[in-house]
């Protein structure tokens, strides 16, 4: 009897949880990735700020990552519940656009401050960063000076990478190597191979192994050390900028065409790049904001090393090369 009561009550309790959106305000459904909406991510703060002015509710649907977002959109097609999709990056936007699901953002992006000029009519960038190798300065006194140094160096330090078939940073490195080495990428991968400790499924595995001390180098972002400085008050972890340039990641959001809340979706996109929203980004997503937020940018961010050269393939070229370059990677690194 007791057991049955317990089961019943737990069932009822869980069934009652999603009854949150019963009121009459319009509900803006935003598809995004999990860490964006976690209590440490930008989601909760942005939600509060936007709901204060929009007379609406934001309903987050939080999936695993950017690739999962795009796959879900393609699955649902025109029937998607999403009004806004937030969390794709420029490696995925060409494919996202090809679904024909996105509407022009219609937002003024001229005030944005990015290392590149933003010309995309559908997607609004909301943060960006440079991929970089982050090293543990207590273990590595003499880190590689350049990408060539990392690739060709004999007895170089071990490095942790992510798999381009399953993660966006992994794909970022493939683009990076492709842009720097072009035809000679296969040889470059072969040079890097002996120094690769392992290639993990995603960023979390690689970064976790890195902070456990398994290898002194990991593929992450130039902004990663800012987290350790701001939250953990340590300068131990540092990012490397390379003279060949560091590859960029620009994260974007877009509104779904034919959404029942099209105006609301557009005002959300405009809100996303407003100074109010942008000043939340650095210390929640640990990426650069897309506009100059002046003194709201923490000093740890202004002190980060900045590559002299920013690399980023246009979305259509990234889409064109992706399959071949991943194949090159698989072949070179599995030898």
């Amino acid at each position: 009897m007791q057991l049955r009561d317990l089961l019943l009550s737990t069932l009822l309790a869980t069934a009652a949880i999603p009854a949150a959106w019963a009121d009459e305000k319009p509900v803006l459904t935003v598809y995004t990735y999990n860490s964006f909406t976690s209590e440490w991510g930008p989601g909760p703060v942005l939600e509060k700020a936007f709901e204060a002015t929009c007379a609406c509710d934001i309903n987050w649907v939080a999936l695993e990552d950017g690739a999962a977002l795009l796959a879900r959109l393609k699955l649902e097609g025109k029937n998607t519940k999403a009004d806004v999709v937030l969390g794709l990056d420029t490696n995925l936007t060409a494919e996202a656009k090809a679904t024909g699901l996105f509407a022009p953002h219609g937002t003024d992006v001229s005030a944005l401050k990015l290392p590149i000029t933003w010309a995309d009519a559908d997607f609004v960038p909301y943060d960006w960063g440079y991929f970089a190798f982050v090293y543990d300065s207590e273990k590595l006194k003499d880190p590689p000076k350049s990408l060539a140094d990392l690739v060709d160096g004999k007895d170089g330090p071990k490095v942790l990478l992510e798999d381009p078939r399953t993660s966006t940073p992994g794909l970022g490195l493939v683009m990076w190597m492709g842009e720097v080495y072009g035809e000679k990428a296969a040889a470059a991968w072969a040079g890097l191979k002996p120094k690769i400790l392992t290639v993990s499924k995603g960023w979390s595995e690689a970064y976790g192994l890195f902070t456990q001390g398994e290898a002194p180098l990991v593929l992450s972002y130039t902004t990663s050390p800012a987290y350790h400085q701001i939250v953990e008050k340590t300068d131990r972890y540092k990012a490397l900028v390379f003279p060949e340039g560091n590859y960029m990641q620009v994260e974007v959001a877009g509104a779904i065409a034919g959404s029942a809340h099209a105006d609301l979706a557009k005002s959300f996109l405009a809100f996303l790049i407003s100074p109010e929203a942008q000043k939340v980004i650095p210390t929640t997503n640990y990426m650069y904001p897309v506009r100059d937020i002046g003194a709201d940018l923490p000093p740890e961010f202004t002190a980060l090393p900045v590559p002299e050269k920013s690399l980023l393939l246009p979305a259509d070229e990234a889409a064109k090369h992706r399959d071949d370059w991943i194949k090159t990677w698989v072949e070179a690194v599995s030898q």
Binding site: P18, S35, E39, W60, V61, A62, E64, S204, G208, Y286
Partner: peptide
């Protein structure tokens, strides 16, 4: 649970992944 992505339905595993994804190791 990750499949449905409901914001009100975060179990310990999902919370843990959220923390990992936000540097909170």
């Amino acid at each position: 649970i990750a499949l449905f992505g409901s914001q009100d339905l975060t179990n310990l595993t999902l919370l843990l992944y959220g923390q990992l994804g936000a540097y909170r190791l």
